[in-house]
Amino acid sequence: MVAPSGLISLALALALAPMMPSIINRTKALFAGRHGQPWLQPYRELWKLLHKGAVYSHTTTPVFFTGPIVGCAAMLVGLLFVPLAGTHPLISFPGDFLLVAYLLGLARFFTVSAALDTGSSFEGMGASREVFFSALAEPALLLALATLAALSGQLSLADIFARIDAGVLASGAGPALLLAAAAMMVVFLAENARIPVDDPNTHLELTMIHEVMVLDHSGPDLAAIQYAACLKMWILGSLLVSVLLPVRSGWLLADLGAGILGLGLLAVATGVVESVMARLRLVRVPQFLIAASILSIVALVLVVR
């Protein structure tokens, strides 16, 4: 099903996605008592990178610059299917959330391949951790989405979120929804390379996960990676906000406004988590992610019984 009104939310996503890291940074700065970087810093960085040349390693092959392209394209296509707070996305069909989840997987496959292409042992290490952790995060995400599908009896994201409104929250599905949202929050933090799974600000290659994989990228390639990361955060954030913010006024602009406000709050919450929590030891991360899957499973059992 194609809904032209989805173009508005698509345009908003494309334009506003880099604001999310910006808000997170400002929140962290606030906690640390710093002034923080300008609000539009992510845009400036993208602009700067797009105007630069590039450096490539002798070791790399075309896979290296295909990685960012595929990653960015996957996120762009994924955005077509993701609704924000009950508004209709551009396209929806039964099972579209599976496509979105697998598009994230495709982006990861190529990011990891591009990292392995450099032949650097540090990037290999980051790649190894990335695939490991996201393999454990995948069941959590899909089971949480399956919970929502079972709860609403619908199979496309648009229909699912159209059914999940304040009424559902009050009708006894509250615990299940909260559990699913908790699982999705864990996935949101893990997939976007945030504390407690990964630290985006760390300075030691040995401890990075996502950052170390893109060490060798430069210029427009790096811009594509950073923009794709913003879009990924927007996609996963939209799913989470649509669950947690069951405001369905029926007016497109009001709903969109609420959704964007929700995303802003989510970014603030992420910043707070980053400020008050320490990163987990690497051996504890799998447990954290498995715990998220378990939350999803419990939610699912609560809904389907």
Binding site: G172, G174, P175, L179, Q287, I290, A291, I294, L295, V298, L302
Partner: peptide, 22 residues
């Protein structure tokens, strides 16, 4: 009250899992 009771039971279950995982 069944809603709250359910919530309590779910929490009970989660604490059991917590015991297993910690």
């Amino acid at each position: 009250m069944s809603n709250w009771l359910d919530a309590v039971l779910v929490l009970l279950m989660l604490t059991s899992l917590w015991l297993l995982g910690s």
